[in-house]
Simulated scan of single mutants.
Amino acid sequence: MRPLIVGEVAECIERGDIIGWARGRYELGPRALGNRSILAAPFTEETTVRLNRIKRREGYRPIAPITLESDAPKWFTGSVVDPYMLYFNHVTSDDLKAITHVDGTARTQTVTRDRNPGIVDLLASMIHGFGWLRPA
């Protein structure tokens, strides 16, 4: 076993790989909240198909995104600050096909360094290291 290198995980996701992520504490119940999650790039409908196949779910089921709380208002409107994925928000970018449900919404989880430093480091690496969707 070796230490997790966030940049390597980000590179895998950038290539289109789907990653199983399990870190820190666990939660009881249906929500991963960034500690036990399946992670993938949010850009294509193909990602939704692949994820639903992996999870053995119906094809129409939407994929829930994790975003930095500071960036959430740039991509979503509604009850944007939501660390527990309780609310649906309207997606404001056509580039986020994998996480946009047919009605234009997504059930978004927002994260901060205080709540989940590991997933924040990964998201920051993908956004800044690979030039993923940068908020205007």
Score class of each variant (00 low, 15 high):
residue 24 G to F: 02
residue 24 G to S: 06
residue 24 G to M: 02
residue 24 G to W: 00
residue 24 G to Q: 04
residue 24 G to T: 07
residue 24 G to P: 05
residue 25 R to K: 12
residue 25 R to P: 00
residue 25 R to G: 06
residue 25 R to D: 07
residue 26 Y to R: 09
residue 26 Y to M: 10
residue 26 Y to I: 08
residue 26 Y to C: 11
residue 27 E to K: 04
residue 27 E to R: 02
residue 27 E to A: 10
residue 27 E to S: 03
residue 27 E to L: 08
residue 28 L to I: 08
residue 28 L to T: 12
residue 28 L to A: 14
residue 28 L to F: 07
residue 29 G to P: 08
residue 29 G to R: 07
residue 29 G to C: 04
residue 29 G to A: 07
residue 29 G to M: 06
residue 30 P to V: 05
residue 30 P to L: 02
residue 30 P to G: 09
residue 30 P to Q: 07
residue 30 P to F: 05
residue 30 P to H: 06
residue 31 R to I: 05
residue 31 R to P: 05
residue 31 R to E: 03
residue 31 R to Q: 09
residue 31 R to M: 08
residue 32 A to P: 12
residue 32 A to Q: 06
residue 32 A to N: 03
residue 32 A to W: 00
residue 32 A to Y: 00
residue 33 L to Y: 10
residue 33 L to C: 05
residue 33 L to W: 09
residue 33 L to I: 05
residue 34 G to I: 03
residue 34 G to S: 09
residue 34 G to Q: 07
residue 35 N to W: 04
residue 35 N to A: 10
residue 35 N to H: 11
residue 35 N to L: 00
residue 35 N to R: 07
residue 36 R to F: 06
residue 36 R to I: 04
residue 36 R to P: 06
residue 36 R to V: 09
residue 37 S to I: 03
residue 37 S to Y: 01
residue 38 I to K: 00
residue 38 I to L: 13
residue 39 L to D: 03
residue 39 L to F: 01
residue 39 L to V: 04
residue 40 A to N: 05
residue 40 A to V: 02
residue 40 A to I: 02
residue 40 A to L: 07
residue 40 A to R: 01
residue 40 A to G: 07
residue 41 A to W: 00
residue 41 A to H: 07
residue 41 A to K: 09
residue 42 P to F: 04
residue 42 P to E: 04
residue 43 F to Y: 15
residue 43 F to P: 08
residue 43 F to C: 06
residue 44 T to Q: 08
residue 44 T to N: 08
residue 44 T to E: 11
residue 45 E to Q: 12
residue 45 E to P: 06
residue 46 E to T: 14
residue 46 E to H: 11
residue 46 E to F: 02
residue 47 T to K: 10
residue 47 T to I: 12
residue 47 T to E: 05
residue 47 T to W: 03
residue 48 T to G: 11
residue 48 T to Q: 13
residue 48 T to V: 11
residue 49 V to D: 09
residue 49 V to T: 13
residue 49 V to I: 12
residue 49 V to L: 12
residue 50 R to L: 15
residue 50 R to F: 10
residue 50 R to Q: 14
residue 50 R to K: 15
residue 50 R to C: 14
residue 51 L to E: 09
residue 51 L to P: 11
residue 51 L to C: 15
residue 51 L to Y: 10
residue 51 L to I: 15
residue 51 L to T: 10
residue 52 N to Q: 15
residue 53 R to T: 15
residue 53 R to A: 15
residue 53 R to Y: 11
residue 53 R to V: 14
residue 53 R to L: 15
residue 53 R to G: 14
residue 53 R to S: 15
